[in-house]
């Protein structure tokens, strides 16, 4: 248990270092969650709560982080200047660093690639692969 706690602590440090955000700044007002167009569940504020409780694995393995579209509504509205979008992106990156892509490229199909807008594909490569 103690080892687990320690690894959670260092993982959170790593996340904070990568994102430049301070998780403990959040006071759980829930404005981010209220405005989230992706209706993330667990929501941004719950994810941050997990992190504060030391439940790092729970946060990083939440399916909801993959529905974030980076619209920045949450970050714009946060009264404490925390950017939940950046924290979610940090979680995604840590997940991807473990070599688990969320979109299997060859499964996308030619039709998708032919019809989609380029910027969506480029962004998708950055966020999901």
């Amino acid at each position: 248990m103690q080892i687990l706690m320690k690894s959670n602590q260092s993982a959170l440090k790593e996340l904070e270092l990568a994102t430049g955000e301070i998780v403990s700044d959040c006071y759980q007002c829930g404005k981010c969650t209220a405005g989230c167009p992706a209706s993330m569940d667990p929501s941004p504020s719950v994810l941050i709560h997990y992190l504060k409780l030391g439940l790092f694995e729970k946060a990083v393995n939440s399916e909801s982080i993959w529905s974030c579209m980076g619209c920045l509504t949450c970050s714009e509205r946060c009264p404490k200047n925390v950017s939940p979008a950046a924290i979610v992106e940090g979680l995604k990156r840590l997940h991807l660093n473990r070599m688990k892509p969320r979109v299997i490229l060859h499964a996308l199909g030619q039709e998708f690639l032919a019809n989609s807008t380029q910027q969506a594909v480029v962004s998708g490569f950055r966020k999901f692969v």
Binding site: P37, A38, W66, S67, M69, G70, C71, T73, R102, V103, L108, F112, S116, T117, Q119, A120, V121, S123, G124, K127, F128
Partner: peptide, 19 residues
């Protein structure tokens, strides 16, 4: 100023349709 679903079209087109 609501989000249209953006690049989520690559992972979850249904969500984009909805938004």
């Amino acid at each position: 100023v609501d989000c249209c679903g953006s690049y989520l079209i690559m992972r979850d087109p249904e969500k984009v349709l909805e938004l």
